[in-house]
Amino acid sequence: MAIISVHNLRKTYGEKVAVDDVSFAVEEGEIFGIVGRNGAGKTTTVECVAGLRTPSSGVVEFGAGLTDVKEQIGVQLQDCSLPDKLRVGEALDLYASFYSRPADWRSLLGEVGLDPGTAFSALSGGQRQRLSIALALVGNPRVAILDELTTGLDPQARRDIWKLISRIREMGVTVLLVTHFMEEVERLCDRVAVISSGRVLAMDSPEGLIARAGGRQRIVFRSTAPVDALRALPEVTSVSRDGDEVVVTGTGDLVAAVVGALPSGQLAGLRTERTTFDDAFLALTGHAAE
């Protein structure tokens, strides 16, 4: 049974529809991504799941022994900071005291690699996000909801956060991850719901969505020889040429087939391009992610 099931969630603010009709289910132990452009309704959706907002209609159900949302779901929201002079250790100690069965905050501190004596104002963006993750985990939750964790971070800090999120899953915590970074989805998520204008456009594994978007490979090389013969290969779906540059798309073991079909020495500068989740997102929504 799913640990979180959302059925036909809708949230409106007056005339404005923030979430139109969203349904999805999160299985225990997975990293479930909610992806979409800014303003797609991602944050409102997870705020409804976390019990911070009341849906206008629709139902959020919990299973697998999740009975107390505030106790058992750890949440990290965007734009939530702490008092400047609060120190890391004090913040964790304080937030641990809010829960009936908290985690050992000192070992969490080691996990996120922060010094307990540092004041919040002295933390870098990446360190603040790591502290936020620790605060979301300090109650020993079954589910962690992480909203746009890596926005505004440099690439190294982003990779550190990704490692940490993978660790959370190893600890047995289900993760609901909100993001608009396609690379983050590809690297971390087991399954993902693509949301646009308050509706779910597609829900699958990142690989599944990529396959749906074409799942094609594309290889590009330079050749002066005629390449029309390539069209006959079963792996090839299209061949086009622009001067010396040849673009071949297809499926299966495309590279081996193309290389084998051309006389040796007739092919230079070969590179392959794979459909990314970015392309899949573009194909689904008709817009680039950001």
Binding site: A50, C80, S81, F98, Y99
Partner: peptide, 17 residues
């Protein structure tokens, strides 16, 4: 007001307190 502006109150509202 600083606590509200900085989201300290919002963060606390995600906990049992």
């Amino acid at each position: 007001v600083a606590y509200r502006e900085k989201g300290v109150l919002r963060r606390m509202s995600t906990t049992p307190i």
